[in-house]
Design a protein around this nucleic acid. Structure first.
Length: 291
DNA sequence: TTCCAGGAAGTCG
DNA sequence: CGACTTCATGGA
C-alpha cells in the first residue's frame, strides 16, 4: 500500500463471518484474489485494483487506487451485493425442509454469489475444464501479466476478448492453458466475427441465454451455468461439476444419477436461487473433505 | 505410479 | 441416445 491508495472504505451491505468472507472471494467463484494476510485479499476486478479486509466483528472494508475511486465505489457494491437482496435469497431457499442445505448454510451463513464482469467470467471458466482451482488462478495470472493492459503501477487487467483474439494458440499454451488453448482461440475468433452473441444476455431468460452461450467452442452445460450464475447473475443456474455430482449423489441419495439429471434435480428442488444453494453445497463439501 | 482436477467434444455401438 | 476417448498439466 502506497500513498497512491485511497483510505479504507467500510462496506455496510455485507457483514460476513470470516469463513464466509474467505469462501466467497477465494472459494472457486473468482480466480483473481490473493491473500496478503489472514484477513486481507488483493485483486483486480475488471480494470479496478482492490484490497479487501475483514475485521471483527464481521465488518469489511476496501481500498483502491485514489485515481479510480469513483468507479471502484460503484463497482464494489454491484460485485458484492446488498443485505436486502441476500436476506430475500436466504429466506426463499428451501432449508426449512432440507436438512442438508440447512447444515451447509449454517457452516457459511453469509456466503454470497459474486456478480463478476461477464467477459472475464467466461475466460476463467473456459480455463477451468479439468483443472484445480489453484492452477486456474495460475493460468489467469500468467495471461494477465503477459497480455493484460496496464492500469496503474505494474497492475494489469485480464485481456479482453478483443485482446485475446490477437493472441495465438502457442502463446496461450505457454500460459499453461493446455488443450483449453484451442477452445479459447476459437471462441475469441467467433466473438470477433459476431460480437453480438454476448449482447443482451443479461436480459434474456436463463434457458435462452444458456443455449446462446453453448454455441461457443468449449462451453458446455457446466461452464455455461457458471458463466450465467457468476457473470450474468442468473441465480437459477445450477452448475454441476465433479464436486456437486458427488455431493448430490451422496447427500441426496441420487446414487446413479448423471450430471444432466442432477442439474435438472437441482433447479427443480432448490428453485429460483438454485445457484446459491449450489454454492453452499459446493463449499461445504470441499471444506468437509479438506480435514 | 496412478488417479484426478469447478469438462467438452468427438467417436462408436 | 449412452458409454468411452482424447485433450495438457500438475497436485495429491
Amino acid at each position: 500500500m502506497t500513498n497512491n491508495w485511497s483510505d479504507w472504505q467500510q462496506y455496510n451491505d455485507w457483514h460476513p463471518d470470516l469463513d464466509s468472507f474467505k469462501e466467497t472471494l477465494d472459494g472457486g467463484q473468482a480466480f483473481c484474489w490473493e491473500a496478503t494476510d489472514e484477513n486481507t485479499y488483493q485483486g483486480i476486478v475488471a480494470n479496478i485494483p482492490y484490497c479487501v479486509r475483514w475485521e471483527k466483528p464481521n465488518k469489511i472494508s476496501w481500498a483502491t487506487h485514489s485515481s479510480l475511486f469513483d468507479e471502484a465505489d460503484a463497482l464494489f457494491g454491484k460485485y458484492i451485493g446488498t443485505e436486502n437482496t441476500y436476506q430475500r435469497y436466504y429466506n426463499v431457499l428451501p432449508w426449512r425442509s432440507d436438512p442438508h442445505l440447512e447444515k451447509c448454510m449454517a457452516r457459511f451463513p453469509t456466503l454470497r454469489i459474486l456478480n463478476q464482469p461477464s467477459g472475464e467470467t467466461l475466460l476463467g471458466f473456459l480455463c477451468s475444464a479439468a483443472k484445480q482451482i489453484v492452477q486456474i488462478k495460475e493460468m489467469l495470472s500468467l495471461i494477465r501479466e503477459r497480455f493484460g493492459s496496464e492500469i496503474v503501477g505494474n497492475q494489469k487487467t485480464l485481456p479482453s476478448w478483443d485482446q485475446l483474439y490477437a493472441i495465438d494458440e502457442t502463446a496461450l499454451r505457454e500460459c499453461k492453458f493446455g488443450f483449453r488453448a484451442k477452445n479459447i482461440k476459437k471462441t475469441a475468433d467467433l466473438l470477433h466475427a459476431t460480437p453480438e452473441i454476448l449482447e443482451n444476455l443479461e436480459s434474456q431468460d436463463y434457458e435462452i441465454a444458456k443455449t446462446t452461450l453453448s454455441t461457443l467452442p468449449g462451453v458446455g452445460e457446466k461452464i455455461a451455468d457458471c458463466v450465467l450464475l457468476l457473470g450474468y447473475q442468473k441465480l437459477e443456474a445450477f452448475p454441476v461439476d465433479t464436486w456437486i455430482l458427488k455431493a448430490m449423489q451422496r447427500r441426496y441419495q441420487l446414487d446413479d444419477w448423471n450430471s444432466k439429471q442432477v442439474s435438472h434435480f437441482g433447479r427443480r428442488h432448490f428453485g429460483s436461487y438454485a445457484g446459491l444453494a449450489q454454492q453452499f453445497i459446493f463449499s461445504w463439501e470441499r471444506k468437509a473433505s479438506r480435514k
